Simulated scan of single mutants.
Amino acid sequence: MRLYLGLVHHPIKNKLGELVTTSVTNLDIHDISRSCRTFGVKKYFLVTPFDAQRELVDSILGHWEQDHANAFNPDRQDALAIARAVDSIETAIAQITEIEGQRPLIAVTGANFESFDGDVKDLTKKLEVLNMPCFLLFGTGWGLHPIALEKAEYKLSPIISKNSDGYNHLSVRSAVAIYLDRLFGE
């Protein structure tokens, strides 16, 4: 599977369902990069329209490209090499299309969608039949805003625990790792 991952900071919903931009966090940059690298994701896009946030991401990524940081922890630089900040979902789609020579199927995740298209096995089968790359989007804050969902061609079913009492609010880092394991794990 040719998978690309996007951590979307805009367009996002806040607690009231309003359109917002969320903050980029250092943990998301590092931990999600490591999960992506472990499972063979081709590129990890951090999507934010704010120059200052993209500059922060570039600064963090640049630190690990320096000789002393790379010598201290080469595995970290290896993982972070697949990450990049972009200003929009559309920019990431354009970059994937340039790399792959075709537009990716856009899949989204979320615990509170009204309907779903299937689980990861269904998505994998669809991608095999269509022979397409996939751009899998994860939301921050209270989830992807309807503006982002309009781009989706596939809505993944949520992660649900058999032991759950209805609580379902995983960190995005945890959700990414679980979905990647379901897509690529044994």
Rank of each mutant, 00 (worst) to 15 (best):
L5Q: 06
L7D: 05
H9K: 03
P11H: 13
I12R: 08
I12E: 07
K15Q: 15
L16G: 11
G17N: 09
L19K: 13
V20I: 15
T21D: 04
T22Y: 02
V24D: 04
D31P: 02
S33N: 02
S35N: 01
S35P: 02
T38R: 07
V41Q: 07
K42E: 13
K42H: 10
Y44W: 01
Y44F: 14
L46I: 15
D51V: 14
L56E: 14
L56W: 13
L56D: 09
D58Y: 02
S59N: 11
I60D: 05
L61A: 10
H63D: 13
H63R: 15
W64G: 14
E65S: 14
D67M: 12
H68P: 12
D75T: 14
R76E: 14
D78Y: 09
A79R: 01
A81H: 04
A83Y: 02
V86E: 12
D87N: 04
E90N: 09
A92H: 02
A92N: 01
A94D: 12
A94M: 09
E98V: 04
E100Q: 08
G101H: 00
Q102D: 04
I106F: 01
I106K: 00
T109S: 05
F113E: 04
D117H: 01
D117C: 01
D117K: 00
G118Q: 01
G118L: 04
D119Q: 02
V120H: 03
V120W: 00
K126Q: 06
K126D: 06
N131W: 01
N131C: 09
N131F: 04
F135V: 10
L137T: 11
F138A: 04
T140H: 03
T140I: 06
T140P: 01
G143D: 08
G143K: 07
H145R: 10
H145D: 10
P146I: 12
P146A: 10
K151N: 04
E153L: 08
Y154G: 12
L156E: 11
I159H: 09
S161F: 04
K162P: 12
K162D: 12
N163K: 11
S171T: 14
S174E: 02
S174G: 09
A175V: 13
V176S: 00
V176N: 00
A177M: 07
L183A: 03
E186T: 09
